[in-house]
Design a binder for these strands. Structure first.
Lengths: 150, 150
DNA sequence: CCAATATACATGCATATGCATTTATAAATT
DNA sequence: AATTTATAAATGCATATGCATGTATATTGG
């Protein structure tokens, strides 16, 4: 054990890191150019939209989005300050709160999607065939399952 | 154009982001636990080691490592402060400098590799067959080629 | 040769992230 | 019920990143 990776593994690793970085920064740039909030905001807003009127507890968001507790806390501060979410004290659990999306939040999320989606398509979706894309998704799915199981 | 991505594309995208994040943070944690510098330091040190005694210009490193100029500038500050690299004025180009690795820098890079490599193997290399890993590398290679060509 | 422009690198300021700790409340243990 | 332990969320402080700009030198075009 603690063996050193083989060539193929190292190459795949480097490419995974590089492609993610490249693709993500393209999308972030597209959003910035369109004068829209960063991608993390989108993720939060989307989760909250799906959660419906009741909203979600921060710790639930934390799990869905794989964010550290302290990062999420501040991310919510910023999004709230922009008026896209609302935080209110939880009725049963005095420690907690419920976060929900506002009208303005929904609106901005809907405005973000075409920018996000079309960038994703252009730099990612259009570059692989349907078959290749499905393969990629499967391979990465396996990885995530294993990594998450730890 | 500006079409919205299909299901498979969105799934693959999400998994690419997630797996990278998950894997990277595992490796960073492993390094931290071993009381070693972060991964970016490794990348810099490795490049410099490969470059030989003359070292590299910062702008060359910048291209190899896909770092923003101002980020690299400060990254080099930190690494230099730790004594792992040396910066000296370039003889012909008065604007520039040459960065080279020190003994201590080589030593720490060599100490980092087993931690880095074994973590990479455990969470990544061991999770896919050789064939799968090669496929993954190919798919990601295509993506990078297209994205970089822009 | 000189003015204009481009390149190399650094830096002030704002924002984001990580770590450790704090505050408040809830749940479990005695 | 009182005490301990666990959970939810916030925050002070250090570090990292992004953006815009600054400083210095090099290159180019007149």
């Amino acid at each position: 054990m603690t063996k050193t990776p083989n060539e193929t593994t190292m190459r795949a690793w480097a490419r995974l890191m590089k492609s993610q970085h490249l693709l993500l920064s393209r999308v972030e740039t597209a959003l910035k150019v369109a004068d829209l909030p960063p991608l993390t905001w989108y993720d939060v807003l989307l989760e909250l939209e799906r959660a419906g009127a009741d909203g979600l507890r921060p710790f639930e968001l934390e799990q869905h989005l794989l964010l550290a507790q302290y990062n999420l806390s501040r991310l919510l501060d910023r999004i709230e300050k922009a008026g896209f979410i609302r935080r209110k004290a939880h009725k049963e659990d005095g420690r907690g709160q419920l976060v929900s999306i506002t009208r303005a939040g929904s609106a901005v999320r809907r405005k973000m999607w075409p920018v996000y989606g079309s960038a994703m398509n252009e730099i990612f979706g259009d570059q692989l065939s349907g078959k290749q894309m499905a393969e990629l998704a499967n391979l990465l799915g396996d990885l995530i399952d294993h990594a998450s199981a730890k």
